[in-house]
């Protein structure tokens, strides 16, 4: 697999699209995020790695407004999401695609209906006359145009992940958040998903925040990486820098 590190370098003056400062979140006595910071630049693929239970999913849920942090600030495309009204937050969410770990396809709807669902709710962003074309285009970009009228239960895990990716893309978001995109997939399907993520990033010029345990995925796709440990960004750098680090805690991620 070739890597796509060139996109960020094509942009001479990248601006941050996501900026998280001093994020704290605890559940009772359990401190999950302990002053976490993150900056995702325009066109960048930023990989966030951390042990299970280290707060990666909590962070991403705070970022999208599904969870409220105890303190800190989260700016997405220049908007402080903690200060937005519900309607403004919903509008902002159309600029963010989210690929859930378990795909989270609506199992009572067909693939077509799954993809149409966000479009029908954001008619200001999409011309409803073109829904068929847009659905087909999104499905073609993940190589699953033939599955348009199938139910999610009729698809394999890899196909479900692709459809979920197509759904995340349907409103042409500027940012895509991937929550463990290759977890639970066999190595071949995982590679296919990684290639797909790269081609989508090239085609749609998105910025991506990828949460993963998969070192191969991180190696191939990342421009930059953050290692999350004890609720803080323990180490930051490129894959090469971190994988050659002498710090045993950093090394543990790459073994």
């Amino acid at each position: 697999m070739n890597n796509t590190k060139e996109h960020i370098s094509q942009n001479p003056d990248p601006r941050p699209v996501i900026e998280i400062k001093d994020l704290y979140k605890s559940f009772g006595n359990l401190k999950v995020l302990n002053g976490f910071n993150l900056k995702l630049m325009e066109g960048e693929n930023l990989v966030l790695m951390g042990k299970s239970g280290s707060g990666k999913s909590v962070m991403i849920k705070c970022l999208i407004g599904l969870m409220e942090p105890d303190s800190g600030s989260i700016e997405v495309l220049g908007n402080d999401i903690l200060k937005l009204k519900q309607q403004e937050l919903d509008e902002l969410r159309t600029e963010i695609g989210f690929l859930f770990q378990g795909s989270a396809l609506y199992d009572s709807m067909t693939v077509r209906e799954n993809l149409e669902f966000p479009m029908r709710r954001h008619t200001n962003k999409v011309d409803l006359k073109n829904t068929d074309e847009l659905v087909l285009e999104a499905l073609e970009s993940v190589g699953l145009a033939s599955a348009i009228d199938l139910m999610p239960a009729e698809l394999s895990g890899g196909m479900q992940r692709r459809v979920a990716l197509a759904r995340a893309l349907i409103l042409k978001p500027k940012i895509i958040l991937y929550d463990e995109p290759t977890t639970g997939l066999d190595p071949i399907t995982a590679k296919e998903i990684i290639l797909l993520m790269m081609s989508i990033q090239k085609k749609y010029k998105t910025s991506s925040l990828i949460i993963t345990h998969d070192v191969d995925c991180a190696r191939v796709i990342s421009n930059r990486m953050i290692l999350l440990l004890n609720g803080i960004n323990y180490a930051e750098g490129t894959f090469k820098e971190l994988s050659s680090s002498k710090d045993p805690k950093v090394q543990a991620f790459f073994k």
């Binding site: 849920k61 999208i64 509008e91 969410r93 989270a104 609506y106 669902f117 709710r121 409103l171």
Partner: peptide, 9 residues
């Protein structure tokens, strides 16, 4: 959550 993230209540 997916519904909420897609801007639907």
């Amino acid at each position: 959550d997916a519904m909420e993230v897609s801007g639907t209540n």
